[in-house]
Design a protein around this nucleic acid. Structure first.
Lengths: 345, 345
DNA sequence: TTCATTTACGCAAACGCTTACGTTGCAGAT
DNA sequence: ATCTGCAACGTAAGCGTTTGCGTAAATGAA
């Protein structure tokens, strides 16, 4: 491993000059800089990250804390974040805190201290965890939730859900189920389910439709969960004519349940999701599309700006658009539908 | 950020003692060690990774180079690798080289130099890339391919494919299609497709079935690709009675194609995949299960052993088992099948 | 008791960079 | 001709650890 001294010696200049030449700092003539750079990769010299981190205090590394890697949403998000940061010369340190155990250990020991220049948090920190993060003294960014002192990006979950449900209402549906997560039972892990639930209520209220708790089922944000949730909905006394699923994966699971029951989509039941999962195009799922690449790069940009200019106040929250993608799983409510529907319309 | 000096001063001992006490090295009495440790997390002192990396030359970091993060196989693998390494006190540095551009840049500059203690490579390096990796002077591990000088783990792709195809043959099928990738067209990215193809040929040959190039379709290892591949197979003059898909995702895509054509599974066509994807349970796909968690932890163990004891010769390759999981997508060939089949049987 | 050995600890030199400050040389102003 | 200013470069002091070596005290053997 060649070090800075060797390239300096080989060129008859000081190590300071080499350092300046490599890092693009002023104080070196163009001629010398060129010769240094040339010789550097001839000797394949690369400054030691540890040494320069020690000298400067900057690690050129970004930490990412995530509850999942293998799930669609997180995988795509991490992927997008990674590409933005590597493009800017930063490396990505990945912390997967899947278990409750790993999570509490992470926040207690905070292994990212002195290791990263900024931290991206893909889970929803509670108050204690947020406080711990603030002690880091580095920019912290969250996705999908806004917290005092943190950079954040996300979509407008309330509005997105409203538009989705409104789309169903526009098609004449009034008996609209929701497949989501939590519903007051599970300890709050993400805000999205709550906000999307609110959006669902908003849309119903605006159309003078009564909320019916029977129509809200927990799909655990997985295909499997979505299928089971739909099974429960279909087993109920009065079936919905439309379903708003808080994620495409749950929607696809629901789709499967519906077809297994011998019902047709959208003939018997309409269904809409959120995400625009790759699979959604395949199965023709109507959905509210969000762009994870955009979210990742926007997050990275905000952090990078903050790192370049810590003084400047960056806008703390960026909201990304979602858009309705109408495919084949939503259609007008049947006019010859069941009794309860005819009463409504 | 408190440093080692401060805790040393606060305790009236030397920094050397604190260092030894923290790292568990001998030369410190138990009493002092305990007091140091106590005070350390009272002042929440954490040794600077940069500084200790500079001093020791070890970074306590593992690099992972992957072509994808968001895909099922890679996501699960990375997840497993991460958990094994964090358990051992190592951090994970993630390099996503999705584009050809990023890939060549990665191997030219080798940004992992002096940054990681070992490297996990999830893509198949060509000879030049392998040579570059060898210059790193650190343990390098690959998944799914064996190369001179690298640690590796993987399944027996040939055998796995053989068992899968044999399963179809045992059910009486003789017109067996394969959905895979490459087939000599695409530049070789992974060895799995090639080995699985060989296994497919082996099984056919053992049963005296002629190979028919028309029955080999490229599914690009995606659901979408699998669906399109199946579409092509169904458009052919003579349809297969069974399909061996080299991955579950392609199998599920194929399943979708078959059903869209109004055919039944396994009534008209049987289908088997490889992976045991979560979705496979849902859709009842027969498959060859492999365990990515096992693969990840086995890989991590091999690397960790090598790091602890660089002299000792670790077994370079670990092969993990796969097993046939019979579900509902494979069944006996119809006796009242098409002409060509009756000739065969 | 004396000497040899071990144990517990401190000193200080690395580790490979960055950067404040000092020095030199040269162009331009006077 | 002298002076000022600036660009280009060198010197050396850190950055926060680890660890070889030295030393003092404690232990054991004789």
């Amino acid at each position: 491993m060649t070090k800075i001294q060797e390239v300096a010696a080989a060129l008859g200049v000081s190590v300071a000059t080499v350092s300046r030449a490599m890092s693009g700092k002023p104080g070196v003539s163009d001629a010398v800089r060129a010769r240094v750079r040339l010789l550097a990769d001839e000797l394949n010299y690369l400054p030691s990250r540890s040494a320069s981190a020690l000298a400067t205090g900057r690690t050129l590394t970004i930490g990412v804390v995530t509850p999942y890697i293998a799930r669609w949403y997180f995988g795509h998000l991490i992927s997008a974040i990674e590409s933005s940061f590597t493009a800017a010369g930063y490396d990505l340190l990945l912390y997967n805190v899947s278990s409750e155990n790993a999570r509490s250990r992470f926040f207690q020991t905070l292994p990212v201290r002195k290791r990263v220049d900024a931290l991206v948090v893909l889970l929803l920190p509670d108050d204690n965890e947020a406080a711990a993060l603030r002690t880091l003294g580095i920019p912290v960014a969250t996705v999908g939730s806004q917290q005092e002192g943190f950079i954040s990006v996300g979509i407008d979950d309330v509005r997105t859900a409203e538009v989705a449900v409104q789309h169903l209402i526009n098609l004449g549906h009034r008996r609209i189920a929701m497949i989501g997560e939590g519903f007051g039972v599970v300890p709050l892990q993400f805000v999205a389910p709550v906000d999307r639930q609110i959006g669902y209520y908003n849309a119903l209220r605006a159309a003078d439709i009564d909320v019916n708790p029977e129509l809200e089922q927990n799909g655990e944000f997985t295909m499997q969960g979505g299928e089971e949730a739909m099974n429960r909905l279909l087993a109920a006394r009065e079936r919905p004519t439309a379903v708003f699923a808080q994620s495409d994966e749950m929607a696809i699971g629901a789709l499967r349940s519906i077809r297994r029951h011998g019902l047709s989509v959208p003939g018997d039941i309409s269904i809409i999701g959120i995400d625009d999962h790759e699979m959604s195009g395949m199965v023709g799922l109507t959905t509210m599309a969000q762009s994870l690449p955009a979210m990742g790069s926007s997050l990275a940009q905000a952090i990078l700006e903050h790192l370049e200019n810590p003084a400047a106040e960056v806008s703390p929250h960026t909201e990304l658009p979602t858009r309705l993608v109408v495919r084949e799983t939503t259609g007008s409510v049947r006019t010859f539908a069941t009794g309860s529907l005819q009463e409504d319309s």
